[in-house]
Structures are given as structure tokens and as C-alpha cells.
Design a binder for these strands. Structure first.
Lengths: 154, 154
DNA sequence: GCAAATTCAATTGTGCACAACTGAATTGCA
DNA sequence: TGCAATTCAGTTGTGCACAATTGAATTTGC
């Protein structure tokens, strides 16, 4: 019996932890965050803060809701996170003049300069991953399709 | 140029959010938790609580540290989580008589009975995932190797 | 046999996630 | 034109994660 055939079976076997893809994802995601931690500590960032900075390094200013759309996070997560980034001196939060409901997030000079210090991190992470570039590409593709399907499912 | 060749490149491209496998994992993991949420709501559990129950359904009692080893979580996460499971009436926490440092976690009747209500969840999730069984197996395998490599990297 | 090292669960403090809600600003449409 | 619906950021409350520390119990070395 192949592994693939086993995973199609129902019954009590389905509840075995080590059969569950979602647990593998949950563990891998936490392991990745842990692998980033010492690298990001040098920048003074947490992983979610680093993600927000990645988006801003691509284009700024961005409103809170634009950041939320890119990252899949809501204002309940982003509002305090962005305040912490502002307290760190990496971004500035400013009410939009055209639409006063919006808060635009600008990079400070220190925030913009940080991208140079972060430039080596993706490669260091890729080295730590122990997968080939082709495997990483396939993994990203599969995870992307999975995320889309899961979002569509409810 | 293939995607695989691109991912080997350094430079500013490496900081692009949609190139990052770790963000894909982070997003997929949160999407999975969100997909579980309405199903687990019927049981009165959160996803980490469900994971702890999965371990206990395989064998019990388990000490806090045994659960922590299975799930990769420490006592700072598990102690309050297990107290909430006890408050829900699904487990009982009891000091070990042989080694009074240990706290053994037992299933209550309600906790043991819950596995029947949970038995359909893995299949429902697999359906929502929109991947073939072979893809899910490969994904689990790749994620497992990735998790091991990341843990070994620091 | 006993002191030092280790094991173990719990606590504290910080920072996400996310549901639910608030209140201000803007848009749309009758 | 005016008001109902929508958009937007922020707040509140709950529940993880995890580093660091505490204090009790046990094991190890000598």
C-alpha cells in the first residue's frame, strides 16, 4: 500500500497527528519563524514586522488596509504592529489629506536603510531550509494553490 | 529563464514578498487554521486545543512535557491551554504520584467521546484543500524535511 | 549521603491573530 | 440633497507562541 493510498482512507487513522498535512504546515511555519528570529533580532524586527517592511520596501506609502490586503492581516493585528514599527523609528503613520479615514504608512530614512541589512536574509533562510531551489519553487506553488482553495472553502 | 533559476538569484528581487516560501507557509498555515475554525467550533475547540486532543486520543495519559514534545510547544503555551481544556471538561490534570514534578493529562469521558465527532474533520479539510492525495503526501513530506532542516539550523 | 545539576510545570511579559465592535469619514442613490 | 450603506482604522477581549524566570522535585557525582 502506498502512502498516497493510505491518505485516502477514513477511519481512526485519519486522526493520527503525523498524517495531518495541516500540522506539518503549522510546525514548518513556526520552525521558519524560529529560524528567522536570530537574523531579525539584528534588525530589531519580529517576523510579522519584517513582512510589513517587505511590503513597504516594494512601494510606499501604503494605507493600513493595503498592507492588510498584501499580508492577509486585519487592522486588529496591523494597527498595534505599525505603532510598534513607528516607535522603533522605521515608519511614520500619517492621516491622508484626501481621505481622512485612511492612515498612510511612510518609511523613515532608517526604515528605508534597513532593507540593505535585510538583503541577505532570504538566502540565509534558503540555505537553512535544506531544499533545492526547484523544491522550494514547487513548495511555494503548492502552498499558494492550497491557500487559495482554503480561502474559497468558507 | 525558469522560476527555479530566478529563485537562486540574490539582490533586491530576493526581498519580494511573493517570492518568499516562508510567507507562503505562514499564509497557508493561517488559512488552514481559518478553514478548521467553523468545524472546530462545533466541538468547542481551537486548533491548538484540537492538536492536543489528537495526541491524547492516540494515547493517554500524557505529561505536559510529552505533549510538548509531540507538538513542539513549551509549557508557557501548554499550561494555560490545558487548563482551558480542563475547564471545558475534556481533560483532567493530575500530579503524578511517582514523580511529583509531572502533571499527567487524562481524557474525561466527554474528551474521549469527542473523537467520534472529530473523525470527519480530516476528510473535510482534505476536500477543502483542493489538492490530490499525492500532492498532499508530497507536501507533508517536503514540509517535514524542511522543518527538520530549519530546526537543525540554529 | 548529600550537594550540585537537572528536570519539570507554572508564571510573567511581549507580540501576534482574529472576532466583534466603535466611531468617524465617505459614497451612493432615491 | 440628504440619509442609508459602506469604508476605514482603531479598540477590546480571548487565545496562542515563546523567552526568561521561578521554585519544587528528582537525579547524579563524588
Amino acid at each position: 500500500m502506498t502512502t498516497s493510498e493510505e491518505s485516502r482512507q477514513a477511519g481512526p487513522e485519519a486522526l493520527r497527528l503525523n498524517r495531518q498535512v495541516c500540522f506539518a504546515m503549522y510546525s514548518a511555519s513556526r520552525a521558519a519563524t524560529a529560524a528567522y528570529r536570530p537574523m531579525l533580532e539584528e534588525l530589531g524586527l519580529t517576523y510579522p514586522q519584517y513582512l510589513a517592511m517587505l511590503v513597504l520596501w516594494e512601494a510606499e506609502p501604503r494605507s493600513v488596509s493595503e498592507l492588510g490586503e498584501e499580508l492577509g492581516l486585519d487592522s486588529g493585528t496591523l494597527s498595534p504592529l505599525l505603532k510598534r514599527l513607528e516607535a522603533l523609528g522605521f515608519v511614520q503613520r500619517r492621516r491622508s489629506a484626501e481621505d481622512e479615514r485612511r492612515v498612510e504608512i511612510f518609511l523613515t530614512d532608517a526604515g528605508a536603510a534597513l532593507s540593505a541589512k535585510a538583503s541577505g536574509i532570504p538566502q540565509r533562510l534558503a540555505d537553512a531550509a535544506g531544499l533545492t531551489a526547484a523544491e522550494l519553487d514547487q513548495l511555494r506553488d503548492t502552498l499558494g494553490r492550497l491557500t487559495n482553495a482554503l480561502h474559497a472553502s468558507h
